[in-house]
Design a binder for these strands. Structure first.
Lengths: 207, 207, 207, 207
DNA sequence: GATGAATGAGGCTTCATTCAT
DNA sequence: CATGAATGAAGCCTCATTCAT
């Protein structure tokens, strides 16, 4: 086995080792597809294996458990989120930062839209998995970064809503006509507005 | 057996005939609790039965299937939603209507907060259950009622966001300090603002 | 309860007792229908009860067990068979008797065709039920009555075949065109021929 | 797994590689035994598994469903029957063909006597299983091959009886004394006679 | 003459996981 | 790098039956 041992190998091997089997990657792909389509619980390892035309046992060569497959897939979202949070924490807590945060968050979300959708639709399941815990932690951190605990409640709600508006936007805009890119931009705009309004609302009182 | 009958009795019997075991009601209660806590798939009928100190077979006396239990519970949300939609469809599509729609929606949501939370967190599972289909249908109808298909995309997104802001609000405000009622009011306010802004945005162009 | 207590009450009660509920009879009818259609094991008491629009418990008022329902129904065939055997045992073991035996057997079979069909198609199930035991006993007795243990094997087989030809005839003639009565007569004729031939075959040797 | 694969291997491997557990075969054997003894419905997978000293789940490694086990077993009878029918359809519809048909049918029946007995005794159950459907189809085809639709009804019945005489013969001759082989020959003889008589009966009219 | 409510046993099936090869 | 074979636990569901009312 080699599980867990391949993070970052960067440069390809010089001696053209018959091309490191991509089975692991294929498992991840198919698993995500199926998890997103049918949910985590309803997707069995048998199904994944059949889709890949390998045996279940083969999955266990590449991953320790079912959850492990999910965790490995989830890193695509988790790592960027951690990076984003680290970045934001190092910035001044200004409106500009918050808006940039939203812009970057939007990018991350749309880069892993299937995965994000999966997490959203499987919260109950994912809650007691590492994946879910991590995601909640990240969301909480983002919440802290975007709202001002000293602001009036309405302002805080507005800020947090900016974040969730983007989540919802990924699902709901299916019923809104128009070019996807345009919609995405519109969603981001609404979110940016919301933090701006929140900031204004707060400064009226303090200012 | 009586499955599905419910014999709506409206006014309580005068001769407080205490027969008619309340097991059915207790099953619904416990089931909702467990479904909300652990998810639908992860909650087994064995668990529900044990919690009620009856046998699994007893559950099947009262409900035809596991899904049936859920469906029966979900009516608490489904019926009010259908009523709300019917009401709104009979009103003029004015801003006032939309805002009243949001107010009533807020009431409904908070009346069945556990159930709503459950649906939200188990979307993947619930998707191919009757319950989920109904809920999606309702959400779509609400979406149509609150947005103006002729408005610019940003306005439409803003409207739809009003709806989802309230969903999100039910979860996220856990991290915002303050009195629950005050928070709920704040969320509604943000939503009301959003439709108002959407309306304004639309009328600038048309007006 | 009254189970078992109503055999033969012949003349109706004088005091027009609100007409002795015919539920018992209806249960028997429906049960036989379903048993014949789907088999004994696959027919549940729930199904019978539903078809009659009564509760399962009602069935238990009229019959002690599921098997009891079957037993009671099976008497329609069992009693005539016992009578037939008793009759034949009192006759000389002549060809004429054997042929009359077949004629009477044919009548009995076609009088309870559904029940007979049921027994035939559910032998494995019925084998360890009283009903099945009785039926086997009867068939064995009929076998003894129709064949001559001193005859050559081929003759004995021919005799026994006469009996079973009539069983088979009830099923198979579905694929033979023609008027049912005519077919029934044809089957009987074939059977009568077979015993006649058997008798001839035997007497050549002995005679 | 291998379900359905069977990889017909014809000639035995030279290097008597004894791997490839024979569990599948053992399941089939035990299942047939129990099905024949107790009936299909009354035989549970638990029972089969226990008898083999494996878990129920092991059965599911080798077969998709309970019915699948039966189907796989039934091929022993179904395939020869299909072959026989194909053969007979390619022959002239002469008496000689019909008699050879009966001879071959006899061989097939006695080669799978347990299986045949099972089907016979579990018709109600088997009726809506693929196995039963196939068997009915085969019987119908054999019926068409052995009888002459233009002959008088009695002749047709006689022909069809020839077929069923052999079925009955497998069960009933238990009560006839004598060497099994001799009995089997006697049954076949009776059947051969029956088609011969049917043919004669038909040609009197037409000839 | 029946119902309402429930039980205990057991059915088939699926799942994640293991391990020798 | 993977398969073949199997397991233990558990899932949903159905059944015949009981009994107080």
């Amino acid at each position: 086995m080699q599980q867990e041992s391949d993070k970052a190998m960067g440069t390809p091997q010089q001696h053209p080792q018959p091309r490191r089997s991509d089975t692991r990657r294929r498992i991840q792909q198919v698993a995500l597809e199926l998890f997103a389509e049918q949910g985590y619980e309803k997707t069995s390892l048998r199904e994944i294996a059949e889709r890949l035309d390998v045996t279940k046992a083969a999955l266990y060569y590449h991953f320790k458990t079912k959850e492990d497959i999910l965790s490995s897939v989830a890193e695509d979202l988790a790592q960027p989120l951690r990076d984003l949070i680290a970045w934001a924490e190092a910035q001044p807590h200004s409106l500009a930062t918050k808006q940039e945060l939203l812009r970057r968050y939007s990018d991350i979300l749309w880069s892993s839209v299937d995965l994000f959708r999966f997490i959203q639709e499987n919260q109950a399941t994912v809650r007691e998995l590492t994946v879910g815990e991590n995601f909640r932690t990240s969301m909480k951190a983002l919440g802290e970064l975007i709202k001002d605990p000293a602001a009036p409640i309405a302002a805080q709600v507005r800020s947090v809503t900016a974040l969730f508006a983007m989540h919802a936007g990924m699902f709901v805009t299916q019923n809104v006509e128009g070019d996807p890119e345009e919609k995405r931009a519109a969603i981001l705009e609404v979110a940016l507005d919301l933090v701006a309004q929140a900031e204004a609302e707060a400064s009226i009182l303090t200012g």
